[in-house]
Design a protein around this nucleic acid. Structure first.
Lengths: 135, 135
DNA sequence: TTTTCACTTTAGAATAATTATAAACTAGAA
DNA sequence: TTCTAGTTTATAATTATTCTAAAGTGAAAA
């Protein structure tokens, strides 16, 4: 993605293309392959790469703005809490973000027909399915 | 599960059945249905239910001990970080807890044949599959 | 039964991730 | 150029969790 497109992308989603946002957006979107990151890792990478320091709060703000605009998706939040489950057997979950509630799904109620091979040198430990709910 | 079994459960996994552990274990395991909780919610419930106050640190310790003994399973951690993804299309993930790394899986590489109905009044927003990896 | 001590519990400090605050800054319309 | 709503920033606050070190306690041994 070229700089002009970055500007368009920002403007078209109502985000003023500030120096910081453009810099972050270029870093994120000027690449071929999917990129996974946490705010922390992004902050480190940007600090390393660029001369001008962008504050951590701005990185949080920008990432959330990009997400709100649909340019980033968030993987796994569960309200940022760690849930425990008295059911120790292999099973799956509904997750209701309205109520922050987990509901069990019996392993037999989900059948996965096709599954990719694990990356080189790795094995599959287990498969967890989350069905996210809405009202 | 009866009190005698609670004591057995603790002892057989090398956990001394202290007053606090027994109280927590009774609360967790003397029930028919699966129970989901966070440390915070468990703390609140225990505070409400019981007369003697158990410290939050003890609840953390106990829950982790129960987990280590296989009496509880933990749902979703991702190293307690929130990951973002530049891939906003619907897709799935490998998660490598060794390296805390997420790897994309194309939506077409996983086929789910059978899926349960959403609970009453709820709809399915999306389905996320996590394939957890080991070495 | 009493003694002993490794295992536990506890309050409170420390850490880590994230969000809030409020003052200074700035893109871009007028 | 001026003006202002939208942004950035340092820092404080918040939240979840872990650490620490002192006090407490099961239960094995005497």
């Amino acid at each position: 993605m070229k700089k002009i497109d970055i500007l368009k992308k920002l403007r078209s989603s109502g985000l003023r293309p500030t120096k910081q946002r453009v810099e972050i957006a270029k870093f994120l979107f000027e690449r071929e392959k999917t990129f996974h990151f946490t705010v922390e890792s992004l902050n480190k990478l940007l600090t390393k790469k660029s001369t001008s320091k962008i504050s951590l709060a701005t990185i949080y703000n920008s990432v959330h703005s990009f997400k709100a605009a649909g340019h980033l998706s968030e993987v796994e939040v569960r309200g940022n809490r760690t849930y425990f489950d008295t059911n120790v057997s292999n099973h799956h979950h509904f997750y209701d973000s309205e109520t922050a509630e987990l509901i069990d799904i019996d392993a037999n109620d989900i059948i996965i027909q096709k599954i990719p091979k694990a990356p080189n040198g790795k094995k599959i430990k287990n498969v967890e399915v989350f069905i996210n709910l809405k009202n």
